[in-house]
Nucleic acid binder design. Structure first.
Lengths: 154, 154, 154, 154
DNA sequence: TTTT
DNA sequence: TTTT
């Protein structure tokens, strides 16, 4: 009987293979990015495509589905909620923010061969992606605010 | 005929009176914040409220509505899309991000006296305008298709 | 990992006090109607309000909330899915249809005294619980990334 | 500044080639059906797929897109609103209802060769489908309540 | 970084 | 009537 609503609906393409981790408490966590593209008029009145990148996080059973079926290029429908985490920047002492979509539900829209990579959705196909780097600007985040059991929103 | 979807639905309370500005080109812009509150279990298994703050931006006609009717405490339903802007921090040279909700549609849910401040958006109360006539004729349905355990959809 | 989506979002006013029943199997069921009102241009080009009535059904725990807190006039936010049931009309033998919204989630928007009838769902007012603390630190953003015409997303 | 919300989000597959018509006033109208499939537990506790069929109606520019790109089997994301029309049954004099989704926005999810039919999305590819019959139970509706300019919801 |  |  919530008194408020925080709901996000996204449909787009996954930017790279998800990163799969576990918290100390054993909760599986999947991090990945999703691109949505808008058509908008620019200053000159020309239509331009503008891509928006979203940081998604899935937990537990949903993280397993991500691990097993989602990879770079996968077209996905996602329902979730917006969450902004903050931490203190080590260098400057400033407050910094990172907004993420906590994924509640997921629907795979790619056909079997639509998504980028090699063979299909076999479990463990993301094994090699553990090492993938985040975009530069999130290094600081990664170090200062690695996900912990305190961050699990349930 | 978009190939992607970027949609946000929020229902919550406005954090403070909106800031209204105009760009150099004369576009009206309204900035404000909206709080949504989740109930979630913490590490000890106790239910805790957790408030999420969203940065909202409205333009043009929607900004005018915000200017005229929205203030601190207003309960709002909002539809919009997620947009993250980035810039280089002057001090550190680091890339920084700010995620905002670009508001497309707004629905004022506060009654006339619910929201915080003084004056208000006067446009009539809802009281007299609620059409209470019901469609007739569910009777045939009621008799022929009374709900049974077979109809429970789970 | 559904391959399809069937989602409804409604915000409107309840048409009359809900009917509460139980199935033979003991599942609680709540039936009620919700009005949403659209503003649309008629044939003469005049703006007209048009009310749409939705048949809602809630089960189990959600039905209990409906029983306890929802009555004629209550303003509600609802999430659910569309379901059409059919049966054979006793008289004519024709197939007949009834479309309902199966309610998954509900949010009560009426203030304590907003809804029509007598008694009410007492559980505290919202007044004291609205967390008014704002996140600090938008200053850097404000200085470095003041909105300009380039940022208008249309 | 609506005071209510009536929003539907569907993602599923088109049941057969759309019917394209024009009202007397020259508004293009596209009618088609969309299937969504739910997984739900039946009485015996077994998971069962249950398909829900939705009646969709698109107008004007959206109807043109439907005409040009949508056919039997197309996977679609749709946003719209619920509308129930009623008419008096000629035979029985009873009030009858038909619930439709008025489509506001559409996103084609089928790759070029995913959808059923022959060549791609050429304009007019649906020419042969004008003649398609509706499911039996809607014959009465078709005769009694053929869409007219009065039914255009804008 | 995706996709069309 | 769709799809996996």
């Amino acid at each position: 009987m919530a008194k408020s609503v925080n709901k996000v609906i996204l449909l787009g393409n996954v930017g790279k293979d998800p990163e799969i981790r576990s918290t100390g408490g054993g909760t599986m966590v999947a991090n990945f990015t999703l691109a949505t593209t808008d058509r908008a008029k620019d200053q000159q009145g020309n239509w331009q495509d503008k891509t928006e990148w979203h940081n998604l996080v899935a937990f537990q059973r949903t993280a397993e589905i991500v691990r097993d079926y989602v990879k770079k290029g996968t077209k996905l429908y996602v329902e979730g909620k917006i969450q902004t985490r903050s931490w203190d920047d080590k260098e400057s002492g400033q407050k910094r923010y990172r907004t993420e979509i906590i994924v509640n539900d997921i629907s795979l829209l790619s056909g079997r061969d639509d998504a980028g990579g090699g063979g299909g959705y076999s479990r463990g196909s993301n094994a090699g992606s553990f090492d993938q780097r985040q975009p530069a600007a999130q290094e600081d985040f990664a170090q200062s605010a690695e996900i912990s059991d305190d961050d699990i929103p349930f």
